[in-house]
Nucleic acid binder design. Structure first.
Lengths: 253, 253
DNA sequence: CAGTGGTCTAGACCACCGT
DNA sequence: CGGTGGTCTAGACCACTGA
């Protein structure tokens, strides 16, 4: 990775560095390999550590690198394709999906969620917490909001929380006929609780997927799921296995 | 915005600052309003400018702020919902869509695109460049790759490039029966050319939407579209108008 | 031109990990 | 404990905008 001349174009150093490093990753490193530490790299390229870090941040955002405090910087594997929307609509928690139930409570949601569910401002709803794993790594944390009116027979359950309660909420929800669903994706940053679940630091970039489930001509449930933006590629549509990467010959370690 | 005690939790300053500023934006600012400049803000909160900037970066990533060099930092309007996937599949460029044709060429695509299209490694394809506007703002730049085999009758056209050529490619493409499509969304950073089209700096966060269009049991076209992550919320499904925001009473200026 | 955000530096200390 | 990435500082200069 010889230092090409900086040219006259006034390209920022960190951007040029990103390009150089990106090409070096393609040609001289394999997945899982540990890079030299930041102080050494900065010295090698003749820049301040902050500048080098700016380049690394870009590459991490693009899913090329993985950095862990106290450990080091490693070459990331290609992003995992995660199916989040399919042609045939199904209820969350239907048999065989990739989610793991963790908890459920009955509480007043944020104003935004209440508005989407068309429930009263201070009306509590069931909140099911789930997490999604792929290849042994946590990739998503979800809050599924279910208004009491969608699961009228749940009152028999008296467990205040826990996975068993979560199962009960989903079981009751599945009794409704799902008429449709729609989703929206936007960029966000992980709040402290999500970050912990996703094994990231607070503020880490996440893809927020908001899904509305319709039944009986109403919004019967609202899911807000945060996916790790560095490791995930969200897929919609018939076949979830799109494989687009600039460097197809990268191999698993 | 009294400084709550820093507690023992060792929350980073920039994260605490982000929270404080976020609440201030909700309660004390309206959309379009200009914030004090970074040096003043940093002094007011008693932190270095770099730390203040880290907090602003977070808020910009979340779509709460908009920063422009030489101008200042303003409060951003709520994100625009942009429909990128619908129940009924349609060809790109069908009448009435929000895209604007800009150019078309015939050249060898990147290896990744060639692999997805199942064309030969050095086989040229038609590349149609389009951009998408919403509310007078550019929100997306797209490269639509069409293998020559999908538009066999195009050879009559001899214009080497230009919008007229782009129209011709799409017209020929529409003669095929669209059998299906699928999409993937992932986080990326804008390359120099995309950044210019999107009126952003290189490296700005973008949502990359890769869509495959199927016809005659093959991939007849491949679209790679980059959307501004700061201003867009991508919507999939029946109704594209999901409105989820933590602060519903924010008004346009 | 003055004022803004964008880049860059050379340090320092902290939180975390594995040994 | 030593080594890693994460945070923070106090400066400097540059690129761009608008008056």
């Amino acid at each position: 990775m010889g230092t090409t001349q900086l040219e006259s174009v006034a390209e920022p150093k960190y951007w040029h560095l990103r390009t150089v490093l990106s090409e070096a990753l393609d040609s001289e490193f394999s997945v899982g390999e540990i890079l030299p530490n930041e102080r050494d790299l900065a010295a090698r390229f003749g820049v301040a550590r902050a500048t080098l870090r700016q380049a690394l941040e870009q590459l991490e955002l693009e899913g090329r690198l993985q950095r862990r405090r106290g450990v080091g910087t490693t070459v990331a594997p290609p992003r995992v394709g995660v199916a989040v929307g399919t042609e045939q609509h199904i209820w969350p928690g239907a048999s065989g999906d990739a989610w793991q139930l963790s908890d459920s409570t009955f509480e007043v949601p944020s104003a935004a969620v209440a508005a989407a569910l068309e429930t009263g401002q201070d009306e509590p709803v069931h909140i099911v917490r789930r997490s999604r794993m792929t290849h042994g790594q946590p990739v998503a944390a979800e809050l599924l909001h279910v208004p009491a009116s969608s699961v009228p027979d749940l009152s028999a359950i008296d467990a205040p929380s826990g996975a068993a309660r979560a199962r009960a909420v989903l079981r009751e929800l599945h009794r409704l006929d799902l008429e449709g669903q729609d989703s929206a994706v936007e960029l966000g940053s992980a709040r402290a609780d999500d970050a912990k679940q996703l094994d990231r630091l607070p503020g880490a970039p996440v893809l927020v997927v908001t899904t509305r489930y319709f039944a009986r001509s109403r919004t019967a449930a609202l899911s807000v799921a945060t996916y790790r933006a560095d490791t995930c590629r969200l897929t919609f549509g018939d076949s979830g296995a799109v494989e687009i990467h600039e460097d197809p010959e990268r191999r698993a370690s």
